[in-house]
């Protein structure tokens, strides 16, 4: 009886994982499918029937007139916005950490807004902001700048909230000690504080990067002509999208996240084992 119950547990977990990963695997598999139809055109809506292995779909991504630029734009926005968000967010976290309690609570609760706000609301508020700026003030903000501003804004809180816990763990004395030893405040930060909170900064950067790559709704509302990858897929899915367009960026992203997380767990485990050994001694 017990054995049946236990195997039932694994079956259930397996079924749920199948449910979660099957559609993704399906896209990956068919991104290697030959979609050339009788007329010689690529018929992506014939997804589901296997006609032979090819790498042509991946080549086609870059020659596609809108998919190619969409990929480049997505990567550019993701890298620049997450870098900017990491810098602004880390500085902010250091500042916030040394604030008095009341100011800190106020700043932090406003910072949570972009995290709790539905994407839809963030998207339309930015859309209206840019519409207002262009109609009443006469300044037309280009798509690239719009995307950058919006992506930085919704990423910063994630950086702040991953750096802050690290700062709380790190001692205030560190900064003071560096000052006493003759560092200027900037030097003290760069040489003592920043290295100490580096893991928090790194995970903040990765969060910002995934937030930016993951975004569809905000980009969809604010960009007028240029398309990010997800907006491109959304605007052309009806007649079938080259599955390689869908997998080329997101599958490596998910793979990266899996590896980062698994390694983190492996490290923690090693650490735990070491701790146990120390205790036993």
């Amino acid at each position: 009886m017990k054995r049946v119950l236990r195997s039932f547990k694994y079956v259930y977990l397996g079924l749920m994982l199948l449910f979660l990963y099957l559609p993704i695997v399906y896209l990956i598999v068919f991104s290697f499918n030959d979609f050339t139809s009788v007329s010689g055109r690529q018929a992506y809506s014939s997804i589901g029937t296997w006609k032979g292995f090819t790498l042509a779909n991946y080549g086609a991504v870059f020659t596609d007139r809108s998919a190619g630029p969409a990929i480049v734009l997505t990567i550019e926005i993701a890298l620049i916005s997450s870098l900017a968000a990491t810098i602004i967010g880390t500085a902010a976290a250091i500042g916030i950490n040394s604030m008095r309690k009341r100011t800190r609570t106020a700043v932090l609760s406003v910072s949570q807004l972009p995290m709790v706000n539905p994407d839809l609301v963030t998207g339309i508020t930015f859309m209206m902001l840019f519409a207002f700026v262009s109609s009443l003030l006469g300044i037309n903000v280009g798509d690239f700048a719009r995307l950058l501003i919006a992506h930085i804004s919704f990423s910063i809180p994630y950086v702040i909230f991953s750096v802050l816990p690290r700062l709380k763990q790190s001692s205030d004395m560190l900064y003071e000690a560096a000052l006493d030893l003759g560092c200027s405040p900037i030097q003290a930060l760069l040489k003592a504080v920043i290295p100490d909170i580096m893991p928090g900064i790194t995970s903040g950067f990765i969060m910002a990067l995934t937030m930016s790559l993951d975004d569809f709704v905000v980009s969809y509302f604010i960009a007028k002509e240029q398309q990010t990858l997800s907006v491109h897929i959304y605007s052309s899915f009806r007649h079938g999208v080259n599955p390689a367009i869908a997998t080329i960026l997101f599958v490596p992203l998910v793979a990266m996240l899996l590896i980062v997380n698994l390694r983190r767990i492996a490290k923690e485990r090693e650490y735990e084992i070491q701790n146990k050994k120390v205790k036993m001694k």
């Binding site: 896209l27 998910v254 899996l258």
Partner: peptide, 18 residues
């Protein structure tokens, strides 16, 4: 981790797969 990671996968892409 296997259960959490799809969270970070693009919505549009996952929906397109369906």
């Amino acid at each position: 981790v296997l259960f959490f990671v799809p969270m970070w996968m693009n919505f549009v892409l996952r929906t397109y797969a369906w």
